[in-house]
């Protein structure tokens, strides 16, 4: 018996076509959904990146996207790292903005160890001078942030320009050696 000779009623044909249509429509929707949920994540170098500077504290680590500065603090004397780390705009054609944002600090507020520091300042400079800063000063056993919100405004680094961070530390005369302070700051870049 040939398939062509099989008699089908109109409704049988319609039912077969309806099922086939549902199958095709569902497959289409699934493929379309997978297209909309197909993000691309490309690995690339940061537009604003850190690089080593002349006064980088010894023992520091500087990478493109992050850096760890191991600075010292002297009792009753301000220690300044004039150019602790560079922040370079690697984009040759566009300016990019960034800000400094406080994330965490140890020792935490309320602990007596906080009294071992007077101030720790992160000042950002460009070739023409001071631009902005994120400062930590001590009042009793508490850290006071400046700006008080813990984050600065965004500042635009011109194309191919190199800015740097000047780090100033100061401890009181009665500070005890061996105490460590850990500060985590986020550099928020608008790409």
């Amino acid at each position: 018996m040939k398939i062509a000779n099989i008699k089908m009623t109109k409704w049988t044909k319609f039912l077969i076509l309806l099922l086939a249509s549902l199958l095709v429509a569902t497959a289409n929707a699934a493929i379309f959904y997978s297209l909309t949920m197909q993000p691309q994540v490309s690995v690339s170098t940061p537009v604003l990146k850190f690089s080593t500077a002349p006064d980088e504290p010894s023992g520091s680590t500087v990478n493109d996207a992050w850096c760890r500065l191991t600075a010292k603090s002297y009792p009753n004397a301000t220690l300044t790292y004039e150019q602790a780390v560079y922040i370079n705009n690697t984009d040759d054609s566009n300016a990019h903005s960034f800000m400094l944002k406080h994330i965490s600090i140890t020792p935490t507020n309320g602990t007596s160890a906080v009294g071992n520091w007077t101030s720790i300042k992160f000042l950002v400079y460009d070739s023409s001078g001071y631009v902005f800063s994120l400062n930590y000063t001590v009042s009793g056993t508490d850290w006071i942030l400046e700006p008080s919100s813990g984050e600065t405004s965004h500042y635009s680094v011109p194309q191919s320009a190199g800015w740097w961070i000047r780090l100033e530390t100061l401890s009181p005369a009665a500070a005890t050696t061996g105490n460590d302070c850990g500060i985590q700051i986020e550099v928020d870049v608008l790409e």
């Binding site: 109109k10 044909k13 076509l17 309806l18 095709v24 429509a25 289409n28 297209l35 909309t36």
Partner: peptide
């Protein structure tokens, strides 16, 4: 996404298929 047009068109053909069957 531009693929929305393809999905819409495919559904149009399915509609045509069912209606022409009816």
């Amino acid at each position: 996404l531009p693929e929305l047009f393809a999905m819409l068109s495919s559904d149009m053909f399915l509609l045509l298929s069912l209606l022409t069957c009816l």
